[in-house]
Write a protein that binds this DNA or RNA. Structure first.
Lengths: 193, 193
DNA sequence: ACCTGAACACCGTTCAAGT
DNA sequence: ACCTGAACACCGTTCAAGT
């Protein structure tokens, strides 16, 4: 039914290259065109503009986390959410520089709707579902920001001015861990019960 | 002690103009220079680069939320956090386009340390404090993203494919409200008790 | 120290023209 | 429809030269 290959590259290949460039630190139309062997102008046959490429990547990343984890009948509801949240964290933190775009397009893409619907199946109160999404996306966004900036920046910390912060500095430096992520999610879920 | 005015504009005036331009949708060094009556190159006497301007703005916005709300002895701990969180939300959502920068520089600026220390005074467990920050900043980031994109985009929603989403569409459209923000924060805090 | 003018090395996007 | 080549209207940053 589909016509033969008229384009020299597949749209998915363009998105692959675009994600690579984001991971490398800078996505530009010119670099993207060069990577797929095209002229910059030719990209506008594939996507209307740069923003469309970014939101397409956001939706594709969202699709990489296994949504069926939320429907696993072998697990209790809270654990299903935990499993999916951890999977999503893994997928998104593999591409920290792409995370801001995901936050930006969080509820626009088709995949976001599917995630929301699946979450509602296990946590039927929409307010509770939204609270979970806020926690999960917020934690991932903060971790991602930390990774792109280059982790914690030398930390000039005066113990006299910041006694409590200094006293728990070991915990604070461990903020960005799956353990802290999971601990907080557990507290959030318990507060929603 | 300080010398007389050698510069034609104050650094704070540069930041004011920069925030204006962010609010208007695009901060460029050239537009910023024009607004304060300088040549683009002259800006590099004030700030080393564009990124420094953005993080300075982030820290200044963070400073606008009244931190003393966290130490108000007339209020119980949870309500102090609620009051501060609502104040911060108000300050940041007044400049939604600047919010991503705040997320990015969340823990680097001097003001962020002060916020953290104050939070630890009312919620002494660093893990709990971080969980609250994740919720608060996550909620603000999602609301801000929604505002810059231009609120909810026409919403093509098939009730057959997304029955639960459709059934609570009224709640979902009210996601971005101080009420939802406060409700979720209450649940988070109760989970942390 | 502060500022200008001019340059350097880039951007995203458009569009006539070719196939 | 897809693609090239070239242009348009921008960027951030640097730097000699002036005050």
């Amino acid at each position: 039914m589909t016509r033969g290959p008229r384009r020299s590259v597949q749209p998915d290949a363009v998105l692959d290259a675009a994600l690579e460039l984001i991971d490398e630190g800078a996505l530009t139309m010119r670099a993207l065109a060069a990577r797929v062997g095209l002229t910059p102008g030719a990209l506008y046959t594939y996507f209307p503009d740069r923003a469309a490429i970014v939101t397409a990547i956001a939706d594709r990343l969202l699709a990489e986390a296994d949504l069926s984890l939320l429907d696993d009948p072998a697990e209790p509801p809270h654990r299903r959410i935990e499993n999916y949240a951890l999977a999503l964290r893994e997928v998104l933190l593999a591409h920290p520089a792409a995370v801001p775009a995901i936050l930006g397009a969080a509820f626009n893409g088709p995949m976001a709707l599917r995630v929301g619907e699946s979450l509602l199946r296990v946590l039927p109160d929409a307010r509770a579902t939204y609270t979970v999404m806020v926690y999960v996306l917020g934690a991932i966004a903060l971790e991602a920001a930390d990774r792109v900036t280059g982790s914690t920046p030398s930390f000039e910390l005066d113990p006299a001015e910041f006694p409590l912060t200094s006293g728990q500095i070991d915990v604070i430096l461990a903020y960005n861990s799956a353990e802290q992520f999971q601990w907080g999610l557990g507290r959030v879920l318990s507060g929603l019960s």
